[in-house]
Design a protein around this nucleic acid. Structure first.
Lengths: 198, 198
DNA sequence: CCATGAAACGGACCCGGGGTCCGTATCGTA
DNA sequence: TACGATACGGACCCCGGGTCCGTTTCATGG
């Protein structure tokens, strides 16, 4: 009896995908207006989505997985712009400009998605540095830094620059101290300029 | 009947202080050799100290309080060296040297007390930027930066430089990737030099 | 349009950890 | 030594993440 591995794939169920969307939407909304990410519980999300708790865990594995899915969803456009976009974000940009553009993009993303970034980095268990999206940011940034003349330590420098965009720092400055989005961008730009220019 | 607020203070009980020491020692030891801080539970600490759980909470308020007490204990000497020590760490040092010395001190402390720093910054609930010890680091560093000629944004710059010494970053580089203590110091020194020098 | 089995559902349930309560043991003082 | 205050400890509560299983709903083939 031959293996039937050759795509007997039946269509995915309609309610499953519908529920997945509902969960993502509900979670996004809940995280959006809450003081701190750990204030929103899995049961809350399930209730808000009109779904049983098990559906959450079946669809996303665990809490981290759900947040991760939300995060990647929002991140996808920026990711594309970086990997195959046009300068200054795309790969064709001259190194110096690209580093600045990269960091500015990260910062803007973190500002616009404070809740998610905070929820993700604040997921106590695993450090942010183990996540693959951080690896991507770091890898791309390091590659760009490598092409900057007179700059050793591209590895550490990439880490240090990214550290300036940490979610809780952004939350502290923007959310708590009322720093403007544009002020933040200016500050970060000035800082990176100082690091890059000899 | 006059208020008896004028020091009717009786001597603190011997067992109380003894237990406090035992708890601090036990907690320190447990945090020292564990993969991740949240792996060590309050019950564990109580058991290791030969004490009831309630004693922990009576003496330190909550988990954060206990970790905080440990942290401040270790931090005290460095704090003194900064506030009333001799250059390059003390207040009399020229700004540029002091900034470098300050950051180096923070880094060394975080390396030598990774467990504690990680436990403290990783205490999900409250962001590290709300803690008063961070306020102190930041305040001192900002003051020093203020005296560096040609450097605007001393506030943000202080945050950004301190971000390069975040506990989980240190843990990642030193604990996971095997970076040497001296390598870390060199990297950070080079990075800050780039930021400071025009 | 209906029978069928696979896939998804949902909420009761479990577990582990932070934090509390209160009867009891211990200490400092007179 | 007697006494009141203080600290003790472990049983207990609560809440949130994660699981189990009987039931429901869908896609498919007739």
């Amino acid at each position: 009896m031959p293996e039937r591995s050759e795509r007997p794939e039946r269509k995915p169920r309609a309610d499953a995908t519908r529920n997945r969307e509902a969960v993502l939407a509900a979670a996004d909304a809940l995280f959006a207006d809450c003081d701190s990410p750990e204030a929103v519980t899995m049961a809350d999300i399930a209730a808000a989505a009109g779904v049983g708790k098990a559906t959450l865990f079946r669809g996303f594995g665990d809490r981290t997985g759900l947040i991760h899915a939300l995060y990647e969803m929002r991140l996808a456009p920026i990711r594309r712009a970086i990997e195959e976009g046009t300068p200054p974000l795309g790969p064709a940009a001259p190194p110096l400009q690209r580093v600045s553009a990269l960091l500015d993009a990260v910062l803007c993303f973190k500002i616009d998605n404070r809740h998610l970034a905070l929820a993700l980095e604040g997921t106590g268990g695993d450090s942010p540095y183990a996540a693959e999206h951080y690896e991507r940011w770091h890898g791309t940034l390091q590659a760009a830094l490598e092409r900057v003349p007179g700059l050793a330590d591209s590895n550490f420098t990439a880490h240090a620059l990214l550290a300036a965009t940490r979610a809780d720092l952004v939350e502290h400055l923007v959310g708590r101290e009322g720093t403007t989005r544009e002020q933040m961008r200016a500050h970060l730009a000035a800082f990176t300029a100082r690091v890059l220019e000899p």
